[in-house]
Amino acid sequence: MIEARSLTKRYGAKAAVTDLSFTVRPGVVTGFLGPNGAGKSTTMRMILGLDRPTSGTVTVNGADYAAHSAPLHEVGALLEAKAIHTGRTAYNHLLALAATTGIPRSRVDEVIDLVGLREVARKRAGGFSLGMGQRLGIASALLGDPDTLILDEPVNGLDPEGILWIRNLLKDLAAEGRTVFVSSHLMSEMALTAEHLIVIGQGRLIADTSVAEFISRASSGSVKVRSPQAAELRELLAGPDVTVSSADEGTLTVEGLSSDRIGVIAAENRITLFELAPKEASLEEAFMELTGDAVEYRAPGQKPGAGAGSPTGTGAAGTAAQTDTDVEVTA
């Protein structure tokens, strides 16, 4: 259980997180979604006591993270930037962390096997690929068999197989009754992994909802109709709950009627249809619609909402661009 109350963080004049309140519950995977620069990593660092909130509080399992006597058993974390000394082997990295809280060597071996790093465990982490680094980070997070897991963009740099592995791992951990909090800037990824969503943009809460609800809200259910008798059809479709708009002559966008119903009405009145296309907003579109105003990095002239993860300027956006190609498997 993670509880944030009016969490605010400013770096100098820049507000990274503003008045953010949410609760992450055990038993389900909770996605933490927001475009780059939204404040996800900052929030996660505050949960771990690494960054001090400007105001507000956040507790893990009922207490400040730093107040727990056995923090690695309470929370396991994978942070965005690698938190591994490049000169140390994976095994020694885990061994050093384990030692702080009396975790035995046998557990170190266990997590190394769990994340599939057995072959490279005695190699220095500096030579690891991004994916291997992520696996080592996940091994560190699992070391203390924690009740709460916090993972910042865990699929970053993983191949499709690795992504699938993470998804299943997270679901299994949640099914065991743990609190699992995972950030991503990709709605498609969250839709496949998470059950609950906390969406932020420019450091503020945008939505706190179940994924199912988010998806049903996203499917606006408009229908695109193209017909040589568009004007005639428009008259016939008119009704109290129906809105019809027309972008150009011969094309209608209908809301409030199903495509089936429109087809029947057209047939009954002997109206020729060239196209009848139900249009469901994709998850990614819904996400962008929601966060459109909150996207931080946008190329000049780019449409609002089309900007999430675009490689403009900052380093954060740069890594995001790479993930985009890695991750966009399904939606």
Binding site: A70, A96, G144, E176, G177
Partner: peptide, 27 residues
């Protein structure tokens, strides 16, 4: 969750200065 009991496991793994010393020696 199914695999979890209602009660939280007790945590023997307190962080102590001695353990942190061991950790820093390993590092």
């Amino acid at each position: 969750g199914p695999a979890r009991g209602a009660a939280r496991r007790p945590h023997p793994g307190k962080v102590t200065q001695t353990r942190v010393l061991t950790s820093e020696w390993i590092k």
